[in-house]
Simulated scan of single mutants.
Amino acid sequence: MMKHTLSVAFIAFSFFMASCQGSSDSDEPINRNLEETNLPPEDIEDVFASNYWDDAELVWSDEFDGTDLSQENWKLETGNHGWGNNELQNYLDEGNVEVSDGTLKIIAKKESLGGSNFTSARLNSKKEFKYGKLEIRAKIPDYKGKGIWPALWMLGNDISTAGWPACGEIDIMEYVSYSPNEVHFSLHSTANNHVKGTQITSGPVPLETIEEEFHIYGVLWTDRYIKFYIDTEDNVQLNFLRPTVPSAENWPFSKPFYFLMNIAVGGNWGGVEGVDESLFPAVMEVDYVRVYQK
């Protein structure tokens, strides 16, 4: 979650066109159109076909049944070094995660530990994936005040060698509590990232029930595009096509990625308007994480 500035703006490049901004009830997603679509050879399935994902099969999931977090599926990252964004929380390996009643709870708390005044959890999937229909059904913490930054996202599996942003980042869902009733979808690469102000982003997408109800945050990912949707595949909010001349700098999305789920406190984006300490504990619930592939 190597993140954003306060004002998330669309940057116009000479090599791509943008359509109008989408919303949760809009018919038109945001298009970052970098490639003309040509019909594939007859023996290759058309990833742009309307029925392309109809026969995708479930290949991996965590339904968060039982009372324990699966050690086979997840590992916890720890630390309070700011995570590149001047974040305030100390991520711990116990005390901030609960599995009960069919959901995973990630809990940010107001408590002083290890030099930080807040604790939280950051989960990484041990399994990595290349392409697919990816869905996370989740509910954002109830709105109580400003200062938290929950996210559901992915990083390229070569981050330890390539670093960020060269590894690539897919932000399946981001939310900052100083801006309630809105959700954000973004992509980051060496060519397009928030440090340069060139990230590929939906901007704020209205979602009036984001704090009150569970929603599906989904991604359709092929070697030709990455699409972000809410609840149903036809409710696309951001559509990014592979560049005409793809490279490691502008398309680091042809390799395996892994999932991350966390609640950050404060930070360069989440803490722009301060942190209301009365909002804690803040709980994000995750009903399931599912991966479908062709």
Rank of each mutant, 00 (worst) to 15 (best):
V289W: 10
I30T: 10
P41W: 15
K227M: 07
A166M: 04
S160W: 09
A162V: 03
F48K: 06
P256R: 08
E35M: 14
E98W: 01
I148C: 05
W221K: 03
A18Q: 14
I159R: 04
V236L: 07
V245E: 09
V205I: 15
D223Q: 12
P40G: 10
F129L: 07
H194D: 15
S50L: 10
I216T: 15
L238Y: 06
F64M: 03
L238H: 02
R290L: 08
A138K: 04
N250V: 01
W164F: 02
S100A: 13
R32I: 11
L69W: 00
E169M: 08
K105E: 00
A162H: 08
D234R: 06
A248K: 09
P29T: 11
T198F: 05
W153V: 01
T119V: 07
C20Q: 14
E249C: 00
D55G: 02
G66H: 07
E233M: 15
L6Q: 04
K294Y: 06
L58F: 04
N262I: 10
D43M: 08
E285T: 11
T190S: 13
Y175G: 00
C167H: 02
T161V: 13
P281A: 03
G147Q: 12
G84D: 07
D101A: 14
S61M: 04
E169P: 03
Y131D: 04
K146H: 13
E111L: 00
E249V: 02
H81N: 15
E87P: 02
Q21A: 11
S70N: 05
E72K: 12
A282I: 03
V195T: 14
N38K: 15
L76H: 01
H4T: 12
D234C: 08
T119E: 01
Y175S: 03
T244V: 03
L155M: 10
N262K: 04
D276S: 08
Q71S: 10
H184W: 08
K110H: 08
M154L: 11
T244Q: 14
F64R: 11
T222F: 03
N192Q: 12
R32S: 05
A108M: 05
E72F: 03
S247K: 08
Y178W: 13
R122K: 13
G147S: 05
V245Y: 12
W269M: 09
F253G: 00
S19A: 07
L220K: 10
L134D: 00
R32P: 00
S100K: 15
F214N: 02
N31Q: 14
H184R: 08
H4R: 14
L241G: 07
E128R: 14
L104Q: 04
E35K: 15
T5A: 07
Y143V: 01
I263Q: 02
